[in-house]
Amino acid sequence: MKRSALAASMFMTVLLAAGSAAAQAPKATSTLDVVKNRGMLSCGVSQGLPGFSAPDDKGNWTGIDVDICRAIAAAILNDPTKVRFVPLSAKDRFTSLQSSDIDVLSRNTTWTLSRDTSVGLNFTGITYYDGQGFLVAKAKNVNSALELSNATVCVQTGTTNEQNVADYFKANKMKYEIVAFSSADETLKTYESGRCDVFTSDVSQIVAERTKLAQPDAHAILPEVISKEPLGPLVRHGDDQWFDIVKWTLFAMLNAEELGITQKNVDEMAKSDKPELKRVFGTDGNLGEQLGLTKDWVIRIVKAVGNYGETFDRNVGENSKLKIARGWNKLYTQGGLQYAPPIR
């Protein structure tokens, strides 16, 4: 009897400890402190989308989305290599961010209202203005998406693409069949096998995925762009400082392009006497410190990944395999949509 009572009381102690641990409300620890203490940024990326986030032949992650992560790491830790990349499927990406597994999600994700609200996340800006398109084998002799009635469509599940297809075919009173896969690779492979007539995704992704096909030239992208797909990085609700840092990292890259600051001339420009440049480079005022960073945060970012235009050209633009035109992603001064608020 004595022994059982002892065992029971020990058990109770364990339970109490577990209970109190569970009862502790999560203290609002700042994500910035977490990253600094860890000495590493944890960044959610795709499972391999050339141009946006994919490991190169040496195993280094490259792409526009990857460069955003590297820029954030450079601004905080002064080292663009201090990033842990977490490859996530479209389906798992939000849960991973909600549960603090990653600090920022930079994974060709479309900004929508429900993701900003009920999913509990905040988009920090738009890294790439995109739209959804269709890829069809040239042999099928299709010249317009409006000829796709009764077609079978391959799509990646958990994306806005899945809903856009439904909307588009319904609006145009066309029948269709959808086959949805959890991974982008499986979607493409099945399309290639002939199970689907059409592969649909954001146009930039189609261009990137098409390079993986056995005969990329045998497939054409239809002219119709059926949706708005503004892609950008996201953070969790509830940490405004972190939200600002991620937001202004992209704005810094855009402002750098607008001011003509490049990876090469950044040291030269930093000596400038112009008031605007002095604010940007932190030689005047304490704008970087207001963000929770250092005075030279813009210099760190541009040295690490270059300005927005350089990043674009290197990863998806003219200096890359994909050779996508800048289009909407030109600066507003050149007729595009990319516009960043001023650093002041």
């Binding site: 939000f94 509990g120 599940t157 958990g158």
Partner: peptide, 12 residues
């Protein structure tokens, strides 16, 4: 696939 996958990622 459709409920714990697509529905989950749409509603969060």
């Amino acid at each position: 696939s459709v409920f714990a996958g697509t529905s989950l990622s749409q509603t969060g």
